[in-house]
Write a protein that binds this DNA or RNA. Structure first.
Lengths: 210, 210
DNA sequence: ACCCAGAATGAATGATCATTCATTCTCACG
DNA sequence: CGTGAGAATGAATGATCATTCATTCTGGGT
């Protein structure tokens, strides 16, 4: 008697770029579920529905895979912000501020598994200079863009006594802190409320705009 | 010929509480230097100048040691805050706000290795419910205290249109975010500047006090 | 001075994991 | 339809690590 026929998954050959993407997404899923510390190559490749060896084929080492995954996540988040800040559709500065806030605290970004991945890497930044370099490069780019936006708002509103650079750092810190609060103490803070808190921050700085 | 005499460290017997403390501090040092993921029991016990077996003697497992270490770190930080907020010396509310800010962004708390440990654990919160419970318990306590302080300030200043609970969450988020910025992009933000940003936040909310 | 409860040690064990590579399989191309 | 370049596989390997426990050592009690 033969063993019960396992539905024999047929091997599929795909372009390199596609496999890399698939592995990066599996990595994100595993980090969100099990944490950066206990994510193994077996988990990642199983999650992707592939064999163990595949990881080595496309990314030389685990370290490489983790690095590329961070690059992907960082780019996704920061590019999203920058696109909104540079956006031409919302020429109105008030609308642009609001759109930014809604992106930063909206459904897409504040999904628990996305924030988990984000902070998992932040947690290793203190010990891994490579991660710090990747994150800080994107952070700098977003901070510059935010400073420009705030400078425009300050000019338009005739606000005095506000340094756009400092306000940008403060606003970015507030948003990061709200993400952390949503992750750590979700019971105490709804996304709705987080948005209101962000909006209040902007309103106290730019009362004529918000 | 005998081997070069290693200075033969004499075995020392100490009370349990003292050894536990010693191991927790060694754990903190290792996490700060190598990260939570790659900290091993050998590292920790070597850092403490003791043998490997000692860890199992005082903490049943590695998981226990890490949990107790988080408890220690969380308590240290949050108790420091709460003590200031409840402090009787500074009966003046303005002074109390300032003292709090100086503690939160001062030399003691913002040391790189302390923030590293803090965020290392935050990074695992998404995957380890135990960590979340420990951190969120302390967070809640500090948030309640901060809300009371802000409520007093609001009453004294006759500020309208401010919800003390929401402002407390916002302020706490800002401070967390500033810690993150100090850790990730220290080049872009001095502690001096972080304090100014925190102070500006309070000033915009409580203009008569700051 | 002696003893022994239990604190401390560290070599040994077994589990887990990243990485390798001989082999199998696919499919674009002639 | 046949073929070979190279994509994909997964059992095997060796390294690392948490945990164990037989043994050694210490110091308070007598």
């Amino acid at each position: 008697m033969k063993a019960a026929a396992t539905p024999q998954k047929r091997r599929k050959i795909l372009p390199k770029a596609q496999r890399r993407q698939q592995l990066i997404e599996a990595t994100i899923a595993c980090i969100a579920r099990y944490g950066l510390a206990s994510t193994t190559m077996h988990m990642v490749t199983r999650e992707a529905g592939l064999s163990v060896g595949i990881a080595n084929l496309h990314f030389k080492t685990k370290e490489n895979l983790l690095r590329e995954t961070l690059r992907y996540v960082a780019e996704e988040y920061h590019k999203g912000q920058i696109d909104i800040m540079r956006g031409r559709e919302a020429d109105n500065l008030s609308n642009r501020l609001t759109a930014l806030l809604h992106f930063q605290l909206g459904r897409g970004v504040t999904q628990r598994h996305k924030m988990s991945v984000w902070f998992a890497y932040y947690g290793e930044v203190g010990a891994r200079p490579v991660y710090q370099k990747i994150v800080s490069a994107w952070d700098r780019a977003a901070a510059r863009e935010l400073e420009l936006l705030f400078a425009s708002v300050i000019r338009e509103g005739g606000y005095t006594d506000i340094d756009p650079g400092e306000l940008a750092i403060g606003y970015a810190a507030l948003i990061d802190g709200l993400h952390l609060a949503l992750l750590v103490t979700p019971r105490e803070l709804t996304k709705q409320n987080a948005k209101k808190i962000g909006r209040d921050f902007l309103r106290r700085a730019f009362p004529n705009h918000i």
